[in-house]
Design a protein around this nucleic acid. Structure first.
Lengths: 226, 226
DNA sequence: TGACTCGGTTAATGATAGGTTAATGGCAGG
DNA sequence: CCTGCCATTAACCTATCATTAACCGAGTCA
């Protein structure tokens, strides 16, 4: 399947060239000419693999735009900066898999960078972000965020939540959870798991669409809204 | 004091010529004939002012080498490329003060370039000042200032503070800090990092908005006011 | 309805990651 | 061969976390 890219570039000439070149290199490109065009367009970001953002854009610069997008997706960004533009702000960004490139740039270089960040994304489980209702969950940081407030989870809490999130809309057995998080002893393990479920429920109580129901004798039913 | 340079060049003839010419031009030169020779040699990179790296080298090319070195030092690099070699990769590098030159090159040209990157570096570092609450921080001078009083930081203290400052309002993992400041060996490093965090907290205790909280099992949460 | 089991919750406990201070040892400069 | 500086280590202390204990309510079957 082709990799899909978002391109935000206001210069029509450069936009055309980039789009054509990227498509020639077997990417599927959706091109927006302004931040607003992108933000006002209903789009499922998670279909895309990366976004290329020009730093100089009308209305809102590429960094602000990236912050907006970060609220909705964990895809990596590649910034286009003019030569001589300060890269301080980029270096200061919380760059996960992100990168930047100065323009004018060699097309080969651009393609190389894109392949790099795509590759990193697959390998790097760090910096991934999971949406759980109104919450954002960063497993590698043990961080669960609800708008302005952040909950610092412990390691086990985080591991458990990650496991549950992967089994959304499904019933997961106690046995499976115990195997995944506590090793495969089928040895009975106190009330530990229940204590952790209790804590997760407490964290997640602010979005009532989220449910961690128990299924007697089996395990738990996980219901997270999309 | 003489400026000190690292030279990595595998061609013995060219190496001799460059070294002599640079020394004639009042630089102090340490010459290595391969990337491994440099990497295996215990060396304090920060004593040096710049490194000249041939792009074509045995084992590892100059770009890979520069990435390795970047983990340990902020000195600028000057790349030697043969005429016709692609310069795309250089232009895309995240290198602020860096430059490249094609060989065969005029010695004057080389000296000129080196003086240029040294000058740039001085200007850059002189101008860099980071506000951290009521403090002013001059990374290049290892100087942390609070109104009338000044703290002379050590190099490692300064590097750590700089790294933390770049990650304001974020959680940074122990692993990442260790990789950035101690090289990416995953070898276990006593309580060193904690000792440095402790010292930074002590320096910064006079502005209670500044927080360096630990996040158990992960690393630290950095909260500096704007 | 009563006895039993399963799961929820809170508080207590022991283990361990992290904080802090002082000691150590390497190294540069004299 | 000193001396001073600095990163690292040692040793001790504190705070946090996973686990356990204890108690409760709710479901199940006779």
């Amino acid at each position: 399947m082709k990799n899909k890219l978002i391109l935000v570039e206001d210069d029509p000439d450069l936009g055309v060239v980039l789009k054509q070149y990227l498509e020639f290199s077997d990417f599927e490109v959706t091109w927006f000419t302004s931040p607003d065009a992108l933000l006002n367009h209903p789009i499922n970001y998670n279909e895309y693999n990366a976004a290329i953002l020009d730093v100089m854009l009308p209305g809102m610069d590429g960094f602000q735009l990236s912050k907006e997008l970060r609220k909705q997706t964990a895809i990596p960004f590649l910034f286009l900066t003019a030569k001589g533009q300060s890269i301080d702000r980029i270096l200061g960004l919380k760059l996960g898999a992100d990168d930047y490139i100065t323009k004018p740039c060699e097309p080969e270089e651009l393609i190389l960078r894109i392949h790099n960040i795509l590759k990193r994304q697959v390998v790097d489980t760090n910096n991934t972000m999971i949406r759980i209702g109104n919450y954002l969950f960063f497993p590698s940081r043990y961080l669960l965020q609800l708008e302005a407030t952040a909950f610092q989870l412990t390691e086990k809490e985080s591991d458990l939540l990650q496991l549950l999130a992967a089994r959304n809309n499904d019933v997961i057995s106690r046995k499976e959870i115990l195997e995944q998080l506590w090793g495969e002893d089928d040895y009975f393990l106190g009330r530990s798991l229940d204590v952790f479920m209790s804590r997760l429920r407490k964290y997640l109580q602010h979005d009532n669409r989220i449910k961690l129901e128990s299924v007697r004798g089996v395990g738990f039913r996980v219901v997270f809204p999309e």
